[in-house]
C-alpha cells in the first residue's frame, strides 16, 4: 500500500503506489490503441457512400411501410396461432425434460456428485449455448420445415434455461425442512414430494412463465429459417418487398409480446 512516513512523523497515503499508477496508465493506453486499431479494421471494407446514403434510404423504406396493409390481417391469424403453439408446446416439452435434469444437477438432490451431476450440467450448458434460431436451422434440415422443428428448437433451447434456474433454486432450499421430513421415517421420494417440491414451487412457476414469455418472442422469428409460424410470412413479405405487410406483421408481433408479458406478470403475481 502507498503509505509513507513523512519526515515530520505524519503519514501520507495514496490510493496506488507510483509503480501501480504507471501500470494503470499503460493499461489504459493499450486499451485505447486496441480500440483505434479495431475501428480501422472494421471500417476498411465499409463503402461509405452507402452509409452517407442511409438516412435517405431509411426515409424511403419508412415511407413505403406506412400505412400498414390491414387487409392482410386475416392471412396471418393462422401463422400467429402456430407461433403461440410453438412457444407453448415447446415450453411444455422443455419443462418435462428439464425438471428431472434439474434434480440430477442440484448438488443436494443428485444421486452422484462425481458422475451424474457433470452429465446433467453438460446437458444444461450445451442447450444454453446454442440459440433457438441455430437449433431451428439444424432441425429444419433434419426434420424438414414446419411447426414440429420450431417446437423442438424452442424446447431444446429452454431445457438449459429452466434446468439451470431450477437447479439453482433446488440448491437454495432450507435443509432443515428436509431434515424434519426425513426424520419422520419418510422415504426418499416422499421427502422430495413433501420437503423439496413445496419449497421450489414458486420459483418453478416463475421460471416457467418467464421462459414461455421469452419463447413467444423467439418463436416469432423462427419462421425466418423455415420453422413455421408468423416468421414465415415475415420472410416472404421481406423477400417480395411488401413493406406494408411487414409493418402489419411487426405490429402484430408487438401486440402479442405485450399481451404475453401482461399474462406472465399476472400469473407470477398470482402464484408468488
Amino acid at each position: 500500500m502507498a503509505v509513507q512516513q513523512l519526515a515530520n512523523g505524519r503519514f501520507a497515503w495514496q490510493r496506488r503506489t507510483a509503480r501501480a499508477e504507471w501500470l494503470n496508465w499503460l493499461a489504459w493506453l493499450a486499451g485505447v490503441a486496441l480500440t483505434v486499431f479495431c475501428w480501422r479494421v472494421m471500417t476498411e471494407s465499409t463503402i461509405w457512400d452507402y452509409v452517407w446514403d442511409a438516412p435517405t434510404q431509411a426515409a424511403d423504406i419508412g415511407g413505403r411501410m406506412v400505412p400498414p396493409r390491414w387487409s392482410y390481417f386475416p392471412n396471418i391469424l393462422k401463422p400467429l396461432w402456430d407461433t403461440l403453439n410453438i412457444a407453448t408446446l415447446g415450453t411444455l416439452l422443455a419443462v418435462f425434460i428439464s425438471v428431472p435434469i434439474a434434480f440430477l444437477a442440484a448438488r443436494n438432490t443428485t444421486p452422484s456428485v462425481a458422475f451424474v451431476r457433470p452429465v446433467a450440467i453438460l446437458v444444461i450448458v450445451s442447450s444454453r449455448s446454442i440459440n433457438a434460431i441455430i437449433w431451428a436451422l439444424l432441425l429444419v434440415s433434419i426434420l424438414g420445415p414446419g411447426i414440429l422443428a420450431g417446437i423442438i428448437a424452442i424446447a431444446l433451447r429452454s431445457i438449459g434455461f429452466i434446468g439451470k434456474l431450477l437447479y439453482e433454486a433446488i440448491e437454495e432450499i432450507d435443509a432443515k425442512q428436509v431434515e424434519a421430513i426425513s426424520a419422520t421415517g419418510a422415504s426418499g421420494p416422499q421427502t422430495l414430494a413433501y420437503a423439496i417440491v413445496p419449497q421450489i414451487m414458486p420459483a418453478f412457476a416463475g421460471i416457467t412463465v418467464f421462459r414461455w414469455d421469452i419463447n413467444i418472442r423467439e418463436s416469432t422469428v423462427l419462421g425466418l429459417v423455415g420453422a413455421g409460424g408468423i416468421g414465415l410470412n415475415l420472410e416472404s413479405s421481406l423477400n417480395t418487398l411488401a413493406w406494408p405487410q411487414v409493418t402489419l406483421i411487426l405490429l402484430v408481433i408487438l401486440g402479442t409480446v405485450v399481451i404475453s408479458e401482461w399474462i406472465s406478470a399476472r400469473i407470477r403475481h398470482a402464484i408468488i
Partner: peptide
C-alpha cells in the same frame, strides 16, 4: 424413525 418424534429449534415446518 417412525418411533422417534423430532421437534426442532426453528420448527422446521414446511412453510
Amino acid at each position: 424413525r417412525r418411533r422417534m418424534g423430532m421437534i426442532f429449534q426453528e420448527y422446521a415446518l414446511v412453510e
